[in-house]
């Protein structure tokens, strides 16, 4: 009997998800033995035409990482959906937009300016901006169209499973791969989260929680936190309360606040939940003050939280309730 087929693709992503798959160690040899790799641009030279030539549903398991940010990403999302029996949104970018999705806080024009003109390391005198269409001796070539709004994979095509994480933890990937390799039944498909927990990260975080309130926030470089004590209670905006468990609370255990890479819990908006959690650890605005003093004191504390949108939605903006910012020339 022919082996089942495997594909992995990257859209708007950093490549970390591909590395994370290799982090499963020797298990990758079993994957290679059990599957026929039929498309995996990162490791083997397949062309898009090869995929187009496959019959529909030809790919048994397709791990799709990366957000949908341009016309090429979108085309491949549709193509791989059609060609795959099981399509997995692999990692935070495909699941919820991740870092590329933060572009939704601004416009394409502003993003292009930052990258090609304003950045300190760019020689702006050359005025080089990517051209949609260029003439070369061989003829006309074009590049994919950059979209104004970054989307998650499931906003473009239906996905069967989601493996969260930036990148997903090797241990979690291995568990899923082993289940697939051993023919164990997966939960019912339909945007189902696999390879993660179902409670908030704080529940698997061993740091001591003393229900202490704070009077200002710190950015990670501003303080060295006391070991063993909850970071949020020390003024670091640790996303634990609003983030899905599954990684084993890796970051807080080494003194780094959770940035929220496993995304929100079912049915939640990660930023909104974090906002509520943060508000409840702030001590300002006691009842001994009058109304105006209360408002002032609270505002002063909240002012020390730099970039709330970027902090609360670092990973999930494109998949959040509002999805993007409203901008003057907003044409989505």
């Amino acid at each position: 009997m022919a082996k089942p087929t495997f594909a992995m693709y990257w859209a708007a992503s950093c490549g970390g998800c591909e590395i994370s798959l290799l982090n499963v160690g020797e298990l990758i040899l079993d994957v290679d033995a059990a599957f026929d790799v039929v498309f995996w641009p990162c490791v083997a030279d397949f062309k898009y035409q090869d995929v187009e030539g496959y019959p529909d549903g030809f790919i048994d398991l397709c791990l799709f990482n990366g957000a949908i940010r341009n016309s090429e990403n979108e085309e491949l999302a549709h193509l791989l959906r059609r060609k795959s029996k099981t399509l997995v949104a692999f990692g935070s970018c495909a699941y919820e937009g991740c870092a590329p999705g933060l572009a939704n806080l601004t416009t394409n024009a502003a993003t292009m300016r930052t990258v090609y003109t304003d950045s300190l390391t760019t020689d702006e005198t050359r005025g080089n901006l990517p051209q949609p269409v260029s003439q070369v001796p061989e003829g006309e070539i074009s590049i994919p169209v950059l979209y104004e709004t970054v989307r998650s994979l499931d906003q473009v095509v239906p996905v069967d499973y989601i493996i969260p994480g930036c990148p997903p933890e090797a241990r979690q990937i291995a568990a899923v791969l082993r289940a697939v390799l051993n023919g164990m039944p997966l939960p019912a498909p339909g945007g189902t989260i696999i390879g993660a927990g179902n409670v908030a990260l704080c529940e698997e975080c061993p740091l001591a929680k003393n229900v202490k309130q704070i009077t200002r926030f710190y950015r990670p470089y501003e303080i060295v936190p006391d070991p063993g004590i909850c970071l949020l209670e020390q003024g670091l905006v640790c996303m634990g309360p609003a983030t899905r468990s599954g990684c084993g609370a890796l970051c807080p255990q080494v003194g780094m606040r959770c940035e929220g890479c496993y995304g929100p819990l079912d049915g939640q908006d990660q930023g909104a939940r974090m906002l509520a959690a943060v508000a409840s650890v702030v001590a300002a605005g006691g009842s001994h003050l009058d109304e105006h003093a209360q408002a002032r004191e609270i505002a002063a504390v909240m002012d020390t939280l730099v970039d709330p949108a970027g902090t609360f939605y670092r990973f999930s903006l494109a998949h959040s309730l509002l999805r993007r910012a409203r901008v003057a020339d907003s044409s989505a």
Binding site: L275, A279, A299, M302, R326, V327
Partner: peptide
């Protein structure tokens, strides 16, 4: 108070 600061970033 915090929501207002965040919504400003969303252009609201």
């Amino acid at each position: 108070t915090l929501l207002k600061a965040m919504l400003r970033q969303f252009g609201v």
